[in-house]
Amino acid sequence: MIPALALYLIGFLILQDFFLWILLRSNFRAYKGKMEEEWPNISILIPSRNEEANLPACLRALESLDYPKEKIQVILGNDQSTDQTASILEHWAKGKPWVFIVNISADKLHSMNGKANALSQMAQKANGEALLFTDADCMVPATWVKKMVAVWKRSEAGIVTGITNVKGLTFFEKMQSIDWWLTLGMVKVMDDLDISLTSMGNNMLISKEAYHAVGGYEGIPFSLTEDFEIGRQIQKKGFKGVHVVSSENLIETKGQKNFSDLLMQRKRWMAGAMALPGIWRIVLGLQVVFFPAMLYFCFLYPFEGLLIWLFKVVTQSVFIYSFALKSGERLKSWDLILYEIYYLITSWSTIVYYFWPSKTDWKGRKY
């Protein structure tokens, strides 16, 4: 009985990867086309807390944006940094009348997480028709704003989610990159079926109308994943959400430096995942249960088990590779194979760490 249940579970997850690939090929919404109207005024919001190592590259990328400069407002938030973040922001802002620096106060940290508190104060200064969000450890392409705005205008969405890739040369960074491709690939496939699961705060556009409709960040329930929560509240108000994936809006970000930081990040993400509808929590749970089921089946039937596991890895790899290719990124086959080991370790470590009785540390603040 138990071997049969294990085999059913394994088969379900293999079919899931297969159908994800089929849907990616047959139902992918590229949102191509040119803007037919004048570019609107937009505001870009980037909060920073002790980001002296990352800010120079982030700010240089902003200088290369091909969006009309007279239509851009950049709002930079200094969230009580104790390093050189403030001086880097002030130096870069000199001679740029379209750049504003907001020194964040901690008045509302009791009702919002640190990032939501910063973005709430920054958004009060925004004069654009749309608010674009990214992080200080990210580098945007020159075409980022035009692509996000064009999709927003054509789709009439309240919120537009972009695509982000972890860039790095180490094995740990490459594995994080593949992890992002897999997760965002699933999100994109569901979104193209008009089932929106989440948004992503380091590559996101929200129309000012939608932002004010939910009362901004101060108007949403407390959450460690403020991007997930504001996206959910915006869609509850009846606004459409879309996920656009292309090389034109592909943002590069830094990976976590070590396994401890990765688990802390995943614990925060899990808090958002637990707010998903029950059916999606079950699907996520099955992803994790796959590994003990597979190991059990391999113990009973070594040859057949390893063959089935290899087929699962190949199916999963084809989906990830195909999705990354939509953004012009080519992944290496060997990395995709090794990812299965990484996935086994991190998925179970994340579950254990999420339920471990400890607070989540984010940018030096504990929740």
Rank of each mutant, 00 (worst) to 15 (best):
F299K: 14
E340P: 01
F303R: 15
K366P: 09
Y367G: 08
L325Y: 11
F355V: 01
Y321T: 11
L307P: 09
F323G: 00
K363E: 00
G285Q: 03
E340D: 13
P357S: 10
S358G: 15
S347N: 10
L310P: 04
V352Y: 01
L336A: 05
Y367Q: 11
S327C: 04
P292T: 00
C298P: 02
I345Y: 02
F323I: 07
A293C: 06
L286S: 00
V318R: 06
Y354W: 02
C298I: 14
C298F: 07
D361K: 14
M274N: 07
V288F: 00
L276G: 00
Y296C: 12
V289T: 11
P277S: 12
I337M: 08
Y342E: 07
L300F: 03
T360A: 12
D361E: 14
S322K: 06
M274P: 04
E329P: 03
V283D: 12
F297E: 00
F311L: 13
I308C: 06
T350E: 02
Y367P: 12
M294H: 02
W356C: 06
S322I: 08
L306V: 12
M274K: 08
P292G: 01
R330N: 15
Y342W: 01
I341M: 12
T360L: 13
L284C: 11
K359H: 10
W280E: 08
F291G: 05
I351P: 04
Y353N: 10
E340N: 13
F291C: 08
I308K: 06
S327F: 08
Q287P: 07
S349F: 05
I341G: 08
K363V: 09
E304R: 15
Y342M: 05
V289R: 07
K366R: 14
I320T: 07
F319P: 01
V289L: 13
T346S: 10
Y339P: 02
S333T: 15
F291Y: 07
G328S: 04
I341Y: 01
Q316C: 13
Q287I: 14
Y342N: 05
D335G: 04
R281Q: 10
Y321G: 06
A273W: 08
Y367K: 09
F311R: 11
I279D: 13
S349K: 07
K363I: 02
W309C: 15
C298L: 14
E304S: 15
Y321S: 09
V288C: 10
Y301E: 11
